[in-house]
């Protein structure tokens, strides 16, 4: 297994290849539907994402005394961010996007041109992911968007993912989509 530690520089990211298992450590920022739309519309970004990581995730968090307890924090479907992702990667210098289910053609291109990588975490494995969260930093957009849509600053250690899109233009998801389309036609013929 490869390791990927913050800061997520272009040089580190460009060494990852589709299919690699990666153990990631460092600060990551959750962002899902509302935050992507907000950034796409030119809204203010309260953090610096240069050489940073976005995590498609709406965590389940409760208040405990003065701090937050993350009870489950697995990935959410990334494809819903597809209309906005490429623009955000280019504009803000994002190097790592973590999510589930893969992303489309424009994100694949942006990863290749700007030097970014898309990582698949295991969907549904909410408490395994939460166990990787060492601390919770600031939370943004809490009032407007609610806890599930807010931008959480999470410091993680050893979050294991697989490289779904690398910076050389390869996409595991595009490959699976194409090969499964061919098999679907075969299965249709076996009536």
């Amino acid at each position: 297994m490869k390791t990927l530690d913050a800061p997520f520089t272009e040089a580190k990211v460009r060494q990852l290849v589709v299919g690699d298992l990666v153990s990631l450590s460092g600060t990551i920022y959750t962002a899902r539907d509302r935050v992507h739309r907000h950034l796409n519309d030119g809204g203010i970004l309260p953090v610096d994402l240069k050489d940073g990581a976005i995590y498609h995730c709406g965590p389940l968090v409760i208040r405990r005394d003065q701090s937050w307890a993350v009870r489950a924090a697995g990935p959410t479907t990334s494809m819903r961010a597809e209309p906005y992702m490429a623009g955000i990667i280019r504009k803000h210098g994002v190097r790592v996007v973590i999510g589930k289910g893969g992303m489309g053609e424009s994100t694949r291109k942006a990863c290749q041109e700007a030097g970014c990588v898309y990582l698949d975490a295991v969907g549904g494995a909410g408490c395994v992911a939460a166990a990787c969260v060492e601390s919770v930093g600031a939370v943004h957009f809490m009032e407007e968007f609610g806890a599930a849509e807010a931008m959480w600053e999470l410091s993680v250690r050893g979050l294991v993912c697989v490289v779904g899109i690398d910076s050389a233009g390869h996409s595991l998801h595009a490959d699976v989509l194409a090969s499964s389309a061919a098999r679907l036609q075969d299965l249709f013929c076996l009536a």
Binding site: R71, A72, G74, T76, G123, G126, C127, A130
Partner: peptide, 10 residues
Amino acid sequence: GEDLPICQDT
């Protein structure tokens, strides 16, 4: 074992 939600999307 730890009485945690299986997935954050309940």
